[in-house]
């Protein structure tokens, strides 16, 4: 009897315990189904946002088929905030110092572009089929980046004889 069920093509033919397990498991992504949400979708949005504001940090965390997973990324956030502050200060000081606003913008862009190339940080965490996992990501690169931006700021301030 059991063998007969196993060979049946309909999913309902599996025994009860199996069917329950299947129902609980997340639905597999189907590219052809417009309603199907890709596992990367949720996190990509967040990464996009941080790229926009900082243009430096790319972080992607994928949690799949797992439970009791704790992810902490607060340090990156703190570092990003400091970085934004530094970038704003650099832009501000240049805009104060250079009367022509178009030129000020160009100078700021120029500086950022040159710094940017050394500052891209990729961080990818993939958790699959895990239980009770605790992940803390500390973006040490971004702390160094904040230091570099601070040096740039100090160099500009010194050159423009602002302080």
């Amino acid at each position: 009897m059991a063998k007969k069920q196993y060979f049946a093509s309909a999913p309902g033919a599996y025994n009860n315990a199996n069917t329950n397990q299947r129902a609980r498991a997340p639905k597999r992504f189907n590219a052809l189904d417009p309603k199907s949400c890709h596992p990367f979708d949720d996190n990509t949005q967040q990464a996009n946002q941080s790229i926009k504001t900082t243009q430096q940090s790319f972080e992607s965390i994928v949690v799949k088929d797992s439970c009791d997973v704790e992810v902490t990324t607060t340090n990156t956030q703190a570092a990003v905030n400091v970085q934004i502050g530094l970038q704003a200060a650099i832009a501000l000081i240049i805009s104060i110092s250079v009367a022509d606003s178009d030129r000020a913008e160009e100078i700021t862009q120029d500086l950022y572009e040159k710094i940017k190339t050394t500052q891209i940080n990729h961080q990818q965490t993939y958790i699959e089929n895990s239980r009770g996992v605790q992940v803390t990501t500390t973006d040490t690169d971004i702390a160094v980046n904040a230091q570099i931006l601070l040096q740039v700021l100090l160099a500009i301030v010194a050159r423009l004889n602002l302080l």
Partner: peptide, 9 residues
């Protein structure tokens, strides 16, 4: 970097 950027502009 800062010197050359300032010089350039």
């Amino acid at each position: 970097l800062v010197d050359t950027t300032f010089k350039k502009h």
